[in-house]
Design a protein around this nucleic acid. Structure first.
Lengths: 193, 193
DNA sequence: GCTCTCATGTAAATGGTTACATGATTCT
DNA sequence: AGAATCATGTAACCATTTACATGAGAGC
């Protein structure tokens, strides 16, 4: 069986708490989005090869679900992966590819792209700041305990907040560029001195 | 013909200056890596559909090459793309997926992963800082001119430096976590007071 | 002698998305 | 009445990587 990194992520999420495929997709959405059509086949393979086991959970008023748990061999597999070294990150950011060629258009295009980006980043920052708040109030001791998964979450959330803030700062700097800012200066009333 | 974002990037890079497939791969490496097996078919398609044109350049002492340029219809296509809105970025970072599950191991694992990450980030920071220096000394006026591609490069380089610095800061914070730092404190000689 | 750079491509495989199928319940 | 959520999956397609093929010249 081929273990790609998404498979290890699925194992890692199930190890925190048994879940259905549907729940995994939701949980992954903010961290590393994946579609259900990718997750369900991974779960089948994990079970077929003994790395995970499933049990039917009957529900009333909504569809029944299949809840998966990690087996000891699954946990071992995950541990061994953590003793390896990760590949460098892959970033596919169409916004940056657009900035790459924006010089062939007018400054207005750059302004629009950066303003839209700011909207996106501001929303993300809000989301992760809320998450940090929740972690701090709901799990004040766990986030300081290395052996709790909340500690991992806390580290990742703090990182996300830090880099997002820096990205926002960069956007605001771009909007202060003369080519963009002179237009705003004209539109504004003279500053009262 | 299907234009994916990599195709637009290729168009954007050729518009700056005509290049061979081999040169495109090198140029893209630091910004958005792509293999030659992906680039060459894109170039063929662009030419077949009239968005780019090629000419053989004969060389002595090294293989001849095919240098591609963007046609006016290619430039139009690129401009239209810049009037759309980009999809949210996709980040595949195995390091972060490992941090996600590191709580099932010992603090040493986290320490090793973060130290390796610091090496990687430090190298990247050096690379982009050098690049910024080069841009500032070689193109002092172009980087301030919106209609020069050096301006786009300068914006992207500055962003990269800013977020990388923040990522490095986070790594160093993680290394100061009690679970990791107490070990170092024991290894160190008592601080002279 | 070995590895690196230059240079262009094809074939096979993997990773991931889009589209489709199905259906009850709850919210607007 | 229509959209959203819960729930699981398959088939087809797209994007990208790995592996392969070829070959000359430069540097160690």
């Amino acid at each position: 069986m081929i273990f790609n990194t998404t498979t290890y992520l699925v194992l890692g999420i199930l190890l925190r708490e048994p879940r259905s495929g549907y729940d995994i997709v939701k949980e992954l959405a903010s961290f590393r989005p994946a579609k259900s059509s990718q997750i369900y086949p991974i779960l089948s393979k994990l079970e077929k090869n003994g790395y995970a086991s499933s049990s039917q959970v009957l529900q009333t008023g909504r569809p029944n679900k299949k809840v998966y748990s990690v087996t000891s061999s699954g946990k071992e597999k995950l541990k061994k992966w953590l003793d390896t070294s990760p590949e460098p990150p892959v970033i596919r950011d169409d916004f940056l590819s657009m900035i790459f060629s924006v010089w062939i258009k007018e400054p207005e295009t750059l302004e629009r792209l950066v303003l839209q980006r700011l909207d996106y980043l501001t929303e993300r920052l809000q989301y992760f700041t809320d998450r940090q708040q929740t972690l701090e109030t709901a799990f004040p001791s766990e986030i300081r305990n290395f052996y709790s998964w909340h500690h991992s979450n806390y580290l990742l959330t703090r990182r996300r907040i830090a880099v997002t803030k820096e990205d926002i700062k960069w956007c605001k700097e771009v909007l202060e560029e003369p080519a963009i800012a002179w237009k705003r200066a004209q539109a504004e009333p003279p500053s009262p001195v």
